Amino acid sequence: MVSGSLMRMMPPCWRPSVEGEDSSRGDDANGRVDGLLWYKDLGDHVTGEFSMAVIQANNLLEDHSQLESGPLSLYESGPHGTFVGIYDGHGGPATARFINEHLFGYIKKFTTENGGMSADVINKAFLATEEDFLALVRKQWLNDPHMASVGSCCLVGIVCSGMLYIANAGDSRVVLGRLDNTYKEVKAVPLSSEHNASVESVREELRSLHPDDPQIVVLKHTVWRVKGIIQISRSIGDAYLKSAEFNRDPLLPKFRVPEPFDKPILSAEPETLVQKLDPEDQFLIFASDGLWEHLSSQEAVDIVNTCPRNTIGI
């Protein structure tokens, strides 16, 4: 959960545990490590505080997160703000790592060209990052076809000039803790929608985009999946579901769609929100679905609001 940051914390934001390594609790350069858990209880910077935590779900770390603060353009004289990125990878670490290394650079580039921050700037940065990653997949296709099956959800938040910009592709979520002055309570305000086939509106969107494909969403083992393969409808990467050129040998058959397709099945275009920050806005929580599968938005907000400030990491 983040209310801001002074600088990029660390490329994947933490030091993962690896097999054979001493997993006892200990200090890390930027936080604390306890087995597969990395956390930083509280950090200070010029415009606020942040705390964060990561639990490694798989032996191979597929997820990255990023915090930046300072100029949001290529020039010091450009707009300043805070950038938060949550990159929930799947199929391997390559896409999440690629987003971590390229997306913010595109944000700065397009902010410079546009003369300021906007939803259009963020949308262009997502699509440029997607285009570059697919170009990398194409370049490595014969030597590493598995790259075509690697992808990542991408959730971004930017605070700039009193405005909040949110962009999401995938099923991560950002929640605002807002003070209700009438009841003197901090209420949860979800600011993003999950692009997951378990959501009826997402299934309806997919069916409307692919009216000639009765198998665009399939209920498989009680779980709704796009083409019976993947739950999310938007991502960066997943080239085998974006272009038919990657839906063939030498990619393993288990990653291939049986029917030919002539337009992308998944989309990299984010859903964006822009709103003014108000004095009642207390904090923001950014997290992947690994958190939201266990906590409601309000439960997470209550934890942040009621726990001591130095123990709010999730």
Score class of each variant (00 low, 15 high):
residue 255 F to T: 03
residue 235 S to H: 07
residue 106 Y to K: 07
residue 34 D to S: 14
residue 66 Q to D: 09
residue 54 V to T: 12
residue 248 R to W: 02
residue 119 A to L: 15
residue 144 D to E: 13
residue 92 G to L: 10
residue 98 F to D: 02
residue 53 A to S: 15
residue 267 S to P: 10
residue 251 L to M: 08
residue 236 I to M: 03
residue 177 G to D: 04
residue 27 D to T: 13
residue 30 N to F: 14
residue 117 M to T: 05
residue 96 A to G: 05
residue 283 F to W: 07
residue 192 S to F: 03
residue 17 S to T: 07
residue 62 E to K: 09
residue 85 G to D: 01
residue 279 P to H: 09
residue 238 D to W: 10
residue 10 M to Y: 14
residue 288 S to M: 05
residue 240 Y to T: 07
residue 297 S to H: 00
residue 273 L to G: 05
residue 49 E to G: 04
residue 158 I to V: 15
residue 135 A to Y: 00
residue 295 L to C: 08
residue 164 L to M: 13
residue 283 F to Y: 09
residue 278 D to C: 11
residue 275 Q to N: 04
residue 15 R to G: 02
residue 143 N to S: 12
residue 9 M to H: 14
residue 148 A to T: 11
residue 265 I to P: 05
residue 258 P to Q: 13
residue 269 E to T: 15
residue 285 I to Q: 00
residue 174 V to D: 00
residue 37 L to W: 08
residue 91 G to R: 03
residue 88 D to R: 07
residue 8 R to M: 10
residue 291 L to V: 15
residue 252 L to K: 15
residue 149 S to P: 08
residue 152 S to F: 10
residue 128 A to G: 01
residue 309 R to M: 05
residue 247 N to Y: 10
residue 32 R to E: 15
residue 161 S to A: 14
residue 153 C to M: 11
residue 12 P to C: 14
residue 279 P to W: 09
residue 86 I to G: 02
residue 230 I to C: 06
residue 214 P to F: 09
residue 292 W to S: 04
residue 38 W to Y: 15
residue 6 L to Y: 13
residue 168 N to L: 07
residue 86 I to R: 01
residue 240 Y to N: 12
residue 63 D to W: 09
residue 150 V to H: 07
residue 277 L to P: 02
residue 189 V to C: 02
residue 294 H to E: 07
residue 209 L to Y: 05
residue 112 T to R: 12
residue 157 G to V: 10
residue 128 A to K: 15
residue 215 Q to K: 09
residue 226 V to E: 05
residue 247 N to F: 12
residue 172 S to M: 06
residue 100 N to W: 00
residue 190 P to A: 02
residue 34 D to L: 12
residue 284 L to D: 01
residue 159 V to G: 00
residue 52 M to P: 00
residue 286 F to D: 01
residue 26 G to P: 06
residue 107 I to C: 11
residue 12 P to S: 14
residue 247 N to W: 08
residue 96 A to H: 04
residue 32 R to S: 15
residue 185 E to N: 09
residue 95 T to H: 03
residue 227 K to S: 03
residue 31 G to P: 06
residue 306 T to V: 01
residue 289 D to T: 08
residue 186 V to W: 00
residue 51 S to P: 08
residue 137 V to K: 01
residue 158 I to D: 02
residue 256 R to E: 10
residue 271 E to L: 07
residue 290 G to P: 06
residue 61 L to R: 10
residue 118 S to L: 04
residue 115 G to N: 02
residue 28 D to H: 11
residue 28 D to G: 14
residue 8 R to T: 13
residue 120 D to P: 00
residue 144 D to F: 11
residue 97 R to G: 05
residue 301 V to W: 00
residue 97 R to H: 10
residue 88 D to L: 04
residue 229 I to A: 11
residue 200 E to R: 14
residue 39 Y to D: 11
residue 10 M to V: 02
residue 146 H to Q: 13
residue 5 S to E: 05
